[in-house]
């Protein structure tokens, strides 16, 4: 029996006073599992990923992550260091001036020494075929380039779990293949939202569908 990294118990999440987006949702994310998350537009996939790292302001139900029940914002600080969330919109993720500064932001927050951060930035950019982008200004990148840099900002933190929200949206064929290879070779736990069935089939081995706020294993 492998270790359970995330456990959701009757999780209910809503925005403001609207009807809940996730309703009494229960699911486990086991260490080493590779899960594809699918569902219609607006079914709550992005909401679920945010909730996992405690970014939904309030939720009902219980959430277990990395060995503890988590409730308050302070409980989630550790979760956010250990699980990397790629946002659906790269404009949410990038706000520093240059690409290398943005990639370094997360590792600095983890408290790594400068040399290690510099190495991580260089290596991550190289892995993602972004060498030469170090001093580019993030705000002037194309949509696909922004996506690749966002992915770099998450991978650079070397998280144990990758929560990826539509990582291939806007990527050309070559970059999609590259990302596919990287994820296939990695042994990290994966939860990937994507509308690209082929991509999901090649990087994950299990599928969960969100339907009416609940998780259905396919």
């Amino acid at each position: 029996m492998s270790e359970v990294l995330f456990k959701l118990n009757e999780l209910t999440v809503r925005y403001g006073n609207e009807p809940p987006v996730l309703r009494n949702l229960s699911m486990d994310l086991v260490k080493g599992s590779r899960i594809g998350l699918v569902g219609r537009n607006g079914s709550g996939k992005s909401t679920l990923l945010s909730a996992l790292v405690g970014l939904m302001d309030d939720f009902d139900g219980e959430l277990w992550a990395f060995g503890k029940w988590r409730r308050d914002d302070s409980d989630f600080a550790e979760v956010r260091r250990r699980a990397g969330l790629l946002f659906e919109d790269p404009d949410d993720q990038l706000f520093n001036i240059t690409v290398s500064e943005d990639v370094a932001f997360g590792p600095f927050n983890l408290g790594w020494p400068r040399e290690r951060v510099i190495t991580a930035v260089r290596d991550t950019l190289a892995r993602l075929d972004l060498s030469g982008y170090e001093e580019r200004i993030t705000y002037r990148l194309s949509t696909g380039e922004k996506r690749m840099v966002s992915i770099a900002t998450v991978l650079a933190m070397d998280p144990e779990v990758l929560l990826l929200d539509e990582p291939t949206a806007g990527l050309d064929h070559r970059h999609t293949r590259l990302l596919e290879e990287i994820l296939k070779q990695s042994s990290k736990t994966l939860l990937v939202v994507s509308h690209d069935r082929d991509f999901l089939a090649s990087v994950t081995n299990q599928t969960i569908q969100l339907e009416n706020g609940q998780a259905v294993y396919l």
Binding site: R80, D89, D92, F105, N109, V154
Partner: peptide, 13 residues
């Protein structure tokens, strides 16, 4: 709110 959330997700406190 979205930007600040994304920064928190990367460990910003």
């Amino acid at each position: 709110r979205r930007l600040f959330r994304a920064a928190r997700a990367r460990g910003f406190a």
